[in-house]
Amino acid sequence: MAAVALLEARALTRHFGGLRAVDGVDFDLAQGEIHALIGPNGAGKTTFVSLLCGRVPVQSGSIRFAGQDITKMPAHQRVRAGIAYTFQITAIYARLTVLDNIALAVQSRGAGNLAAESMAALDRVGLASRADMLAGELSYGHQRLLEVAMGLALRPRLLILDEPTQGLANSEIDAFKDLVRGVVPEMTVLLIEHNMDVVMDLAQRITVLNFGQVLATGTPDEIRANPAVQTAYLGG
């Protein structure tokens, strides 16, 4: 990968008591790629991306994003700097309308015409006709979609998706894959995903975490062929 690095993490570490959730991870994201992060449950994937987006403070190591050291930057500033995170457990504003949900994202990045750009952002994921519904009344799949739409509406440089397809039907997963393919290369996507079909289909590169450490990084084919990964994760 000779591409320009958007994000570089070096020796990133976070322990919780005796648990080495993230333990000396070196990690690079190339501008415009779709990068998947996989690993068994408890491998430290969510903790790792939480360090990247600032939800969990870094214990040691460093993170550079777009040439800037963001290791100590608070989470809300990282969002403004261009890192968007969509929650593993859907975290929309259930008691607000769908339109208010998306408008909160759109106005955060500073839009010229808030109403129009909010509707455009909803239109992009096919939720425009439900703009006036309460977000909590949407079906589960639509709530996941709204969550992703809020991330997209921030127009981030890096979009972190934490298990976005969990609980979605197959038809919804296909639509989701098209959506993600459509945002690169303007955005860079970091995807935590358990669904191997989605990972192999979407990702250009894959990083495998195990016990808080990087087990392997490579293309889908390289990862499939990697014996260490097969033993640890893919089950031979």
Binding site: C53, R55, P74, A75, H76, Q77, V79, R80, A84, Y85, F87, A91, I92, Y93, L104, A105, S108, R109, M150, L154
Partner: peptide
């Protein structure tokens, strides 16, 4: 959620 939309 609001923090992760960029609000302090």
């Amino acid at each position: 959620r609001s923090r992760m939309l960029g609000y302090d």
